[in-house]
């Protein structure tokens, strides 16, 4: 379902160009507005649709198997932490969905590992990763090993 851009809404800001993972949203040199230069490499991932401040991008189902007359619109709101979808069927049926996208204020809950206390030598020599053994065991034990799991290394088989 490749994207297309409404001429009257796009102001050429380039957000879609910046985000498209397929590198197919480009600014048209004549009109100074964005368009999809390679629809056959569009995954209809909606990254550009979600990123467009003007809601200028929409999706029209792939011509080779999707009949005209439908729409799937989205509004993603980082402040509110939600994403809202509106699905319109060819036959007029409508469905609406709303989901959370995050539970924390955007980007603030992730620690800067450059500033946490550095790991000591014992930690370095162990198999542990940052913040472990938190979360990895039911008891307070350390990381699972073959021994703790009661496993033995058996000879490799070529049979």
């Amino acid at each position: 379902m490749p994207t297309f851009v409404y001429m009257t809404r796009c102001d050429g800001c380039g957000h879609c160009v910046d985000i498209c993972p397929s590198d197919i949203m480009h600014i048209d040199p004549t009109y100074r507005r964005a368009y999809n230069i390679e629809p056959s490499m569009c995954w209809e991932c909606y990254s550009c649709v979600k990123a467009c401040p003007q809601n200028a991008i929409d999706v029209r189902g792939y011509a080779d198997f999707a009949p005209l007359g439908h729409s799937v619109r989205v509004i993603r709101d980082e402040e509110k932490g939600t994403i809202a979808w509106k699905i319109k069927y060819r036959n007029g049926t409508e469905k609406n969905f709303l989901s959370p996208i995050t539970t924390k204020p955007w980007g603030q809950a992730i620690p800067k590992l450059a500033d946490v206390p550095a790991p000591n030598q014992e930690m370095r020599d162990s198999q542990l990763l940052y913040n472990e053994p938190k979360w990895i065991r039911m008891d307070d034990g350390g990381l699972h090993t073959l021994q703790s799991a009661g496993l033995k290394m058996k000879k490799g088989v070529y049979y």
Partner: peptide, 22 residues
């Protein structure tokens, strides 16, 4: 069922909307 698609394969939702598959 729907949010599953909208969360990871939006194209499937577009396809069903366009072909009137509910």
């Amino acid at each position: 069922g729907w949010e599953n698609f909208l969360g990871m394969t939006i194209g499937q939702a577009v396809l069903w909307a366009s072909t009137d598959v509910d």
